[in-house]
Design a protein around this nucleic acid. Structure first.
Lengths: 155, 155
DNA sequence: GGCATATCGTTATGATCATAACGATAAACG
DNA sequence: CGTTTATCGTTATGATCATAACGATATGCC
């Protein structure tokens, strides 16, 4: 087994001052999201669903039919992105689309019967997955994390 | 000005039980990362750099020359992904590559003079950006967030 | 030395992402 | 009523991402 090539860390030639990449929130958030996302895919990957796709289905389950644009905002996706996600879900018959009768601009998205069934199957798994992701934290820390993240996300 | 199409929220037809998408850490982390990332791009976007590209440069600045693979691990990117990032940075002459003399498998990546200069210009901006992202939090909360995120990322 | 195993980098595929520009439709307003 | 402005969805471009499969090289151990 070859050892991990740490390669004797070439001498740090520059004055790195006090700066460390690990101290940048963005970097930490990205890694934490990677972890959470992979936890989810590990569990629901057999359904061939990604985290954003699941979020989309879950939101439709909560809210019922929504315009594509509003749906996108409710899952934090740009119009161009939610479009692609909806197309994939539609191709798999998990959602259906129809034109809004009064506002011809809108495309209404809704879960199909199969979509509803799938979401109801997935929700317990997702809750379990969240627990796994949060496992390194104590109960009161979890609560705290939610509050802090909420503030960051809202700005 | 047309009102935001909330569309009178079609009646929630399913039993949503206690489930809410907002209660899933992954979703919160994704949104928080979106915020942090856009904060960074707002500030360094004029340099045509993305957050992952910046992270890559910053890591090289901290550590000096690294193999492409190790560099990838140190910025939390898969081999296939760090490859593309390095290619883009190389195209812009911010990094240079060379073969390792003793281990023919390795490609050593290092900052160019231009790369070093750019990083040193960007570091203060990035620190400022982190402060902006964390602005909604009090001092003690920031410290706490780091600890919690660190635990999540490490698993 | 020679074989099994591990690591490195590449390639290919498919899904996110953000951004800008665009036509179509709707609402606001004089 | 007609003009201006806003919103919706699309298209295009480019950058992340994860995953699997692959050849090349290095290391482990016999």
């Amino acid at each position: 087994m070859p050892r991990t090539s740490t390669k004797a860390a070439a001498p740090v030639r520059r004055v790195a001052s006090d700066y460390r990449l690990e101290d940048q929130v963005g970097f930490l958030l990205r890694r934490a999201y990677q972890r959470a996302s992979s936890n989810l895919v590990d569990r629901i990957g057999s359904y061939d669903l990604t985290a954003p796709q699941y979020a989309t289905l879950a939101r439709l389950y909560e809210r019922g039919a929504l315009s594509q644009n509003l749906l996108g905002r409710l899952v934090a996706m740009e119009p161009a992105n939610i479009r692609d996600v909806v197309l994939r879900l539609k191709k798999r018959r998990l959602v259906a689309t129809r034109r809004d009768a009064t506002d011809k601009r809108l495309i209404l998205i809704d879960l199909t019967t199969a979509g509803v069934a799938l979401v109801e199957q997935l929700i317990p798994i997702e809750i379990e997955c969240t627990a796994t992701t949060l496992a390194p934290l104590k109960a009161d820390q979890k609560q705290l994390l939610y509050e802090l993240l909420g503030r960051l996300a809202e700005g």
